[in-house]
Design a protein around this nucleic acid. Sequence first.
RNA 1: GGCCGGUUGGCAGAGUGGCUCAUGCAGAGGACUGCAAAUCCUUGUACAUCGGUUCAAUUCCGGUACCGGCCUCCA
Length: 459
Amino acid sequence: MTTIYLHNTLKRRKEEFKPIDASNVRMYVCGPTVYDRAHLGNAKTPVTFDVLYRLLRYVYGSAHVNYVSNITDVDDKILKKHQETGKPIREITEQTYQWYVDDMAKLNVLAPNHRPRATEYIGEMIELVKLLLANGHAYEAAGHVLFDVDSMPGYGSLSGRSMKEMLAGARIEVADYKKNPADFVLWKPSSPGQPGWDSPWGYGRPGWHLECSAMSSKLLGNSFDIHGGGADLIFPHHENECAQSLCAHPGEKFANYWVHSGMLMVDGVKMSKSLGNFYLIDEVLEKAPAEALRLLFLGTHYHQPFNFTFEGLAQSKAVLDKFYNALLRVKNVAAAPAEPDNRVVEALADDLNTPLAISYLHELSNNLNKAESPAEQARCKGELLASADLLGLLWQNAESWFKGGENDTDAEAVEAKIAERAAAKKNKDYALADKIRNELKEQGILLEDTPQGTTWKKA
RNA sequence: GGCCGGUUGGCAGAGUGGCUCAUGCAGAGGACUGCAAAUCCUUGUACAUCGGUUCAAUUCCGGUACCGGCCUCCA
């Protein structure tokens, strides 16, 4: 069996991945808060973990991997959106959720086994708070329930911070009811108009960190294998999740491997609305196919900061053109059943080295181009597709890759032009032939003469 | 102020204590083509900086510079 290595934030190094139960490998990844359309950063993390999910399924069998990614549908940002737009909260969260799922599908991100919504696990959250109060890790103050960080000796170990460091330069406004400024909210009161649920501490709503602890515990157990998310979540979100879960369930491990994906930047700096370099997924997908964005993400190791540029996006599109060209040539050859290239598997198993894996796809694509006999072509095609599938790439039909899209192309008209040009070529009227080719080129139709005749594709 | 991470050829981006070599894009030359396109072949250019360890460092260690991120909501 392939051995997977992962960079574990907890240990700050790469280590061998050993699941608690190889017949039930469990992974939890923090999903989005559904208050607005997903931006590029929201896309990068799920794509990263989608590759890990695919790898785990390949290694352990798809029936033996349980992947949970939550949806945060109760949050102050949602409340704010509600106040700004006047739209019902439910409408905001449902619409945003649908957008998110659609974006993920376009990016060929497999649906996790569960996408739990926070509002469906309020009961579990309340139980968790009760547990923490009962064992002395939480206290009530001014209508809130707070986690008592001083009650936990190891607090700060995930993010590598000591309490002193955290307080030294922190720009936190400290609520005066906190025993320690680092104490965080488990449950907070809601006013009558705000979303809330009845609880032993009155009408209120959960703190953000609590959601993930409650949902992961319910769906994956108190100890599971991998917990993922964006690197920005390490502190405070994951640190606090860790604290809650470990204190609520003494003796359990919570997550054994913490995997974090590097932050997305645009043109070398953090993507932010104030810098004017903030992009939503659907905005970017107007300029390039979703697969190009996916390939672009995977072209940089997940742990590194990822720099998005439109130049890079265009380049990824060109690379896919190359791959699909190779596939287009053998569109009539059925791919032979194949296993992924072992080097691709090994590259991914080595802490998801997707750039290295992609370099092998280039080699496989070259092999396919060079293959002459149908048997060889079938073998190479199968190998390329099986390998690419592990990365969630090359799932589209080669012909529709080049000819699909907005569907505004009149294929018959193009074919007629090609016939006209073929006649001109036969008469050695190359001026006319070139004229026709150039006219089509201006319409975004590229012609290619092959021994089997002329084919066309969209630019 | 504290804590992380990075600095590789024109660009993107892996990797490695010594070997002929990442890979891709772009560039150059060639094959094929009426000319192109696609494809194939050949090819140039690199490891921020200063020290240290070593027979040997782009790779390990330390300093410096620069860049980015986190410490508040954030994927």
